[in-house]
Nucleic acid binder design. Sequence first.
DNA 1: AGGCATGTTACAGG
DNA 2: ACCTGTAACATGCC
Length: 287
Amino acid sequence: MPELPEVEIVKRSLSKITKKAKILDIKIKNKNLRYKVPKRIRKELVNEKIIKISRRSKYLIFHFKDKNLLVHLGMTGKIIIMKNKSKQLYKTSFYYNLNILPQHNHIYFVLNNGFNLIYNDVRRFGFFRFYKKTKLKDINFLKKLGIEPLSKDFNAKYFRINLKKRKKNIKNLLMDQTFISGLGNIYVNEVLFNSKIHPLRSCKKLNKNEIVSLILNIKKILKISILTGGSSIKDFKDASGKSGSFQQFFKVYGRQNKKCSRISCNSKVKKFFISGRSSFYCENCQI
DNA sequence: AGGCATGTTACAGG
DNA sequence: ACCTGTAACATGCC
């Protein structure tokens, strides 16, 4: 599910219902996520008020007084909002509608406002990390991250300055979270198509116009995706169960052998692998 | 049956 | 040091 826009959507839908909410209980059903879920979050966070939820790159941060909970959704992690003691919990239709299975509910947060937050993750690549009296800027996971693509500081100057030592192809550069953080495989494919740049082009050899085009398209695509509720590829739903619709606007991702999305172009979309990740491009439009 | 999947990390080799 | 590809993690879908 989650690249930057999807995480942003989850953050927004969670923020709406967690305002001033206090945690009454935490139930860890399965601690075996990517990293073992720290048992002490129960002791540390019960009775604590959620001050706010923020996002950095693809990470969610739950803020408490002097404490933070860092959450990464991995590939298939979801946070679902459910009414306390709701019978929905036992209804197959509920799970069917959300496209999840109850056996993958791993962690329950019981709030004092009548809602539960449920962490569900099929593949368990997501993780939770707990920090007490640690400043956000001292958290290793966050320290490593490159710039937020929607920030004003992500501009041609940033590109120029930070490109100096890099030799990667442009697709791998945009996937590199230490250069720019928040893009994943889907959005990188889309951005390169929209910018008419071949994914294997050396990042060093892009001209000024191409760099400007990349930056504009990155910002544009992320913003539109957020506005349309994220991409519901396979199964993305926001925390309250709503689907996004940005996947309707995919121009290359998943479109191998289909006609190029540009009306004036009759080429077919090609698929191949770059560093193990599927890559889609139009050989006519992307040079 | 086997390949592939939105993410990240470790490792080997260039 | 930096880069690339591969494998690993665990599960489900086509």
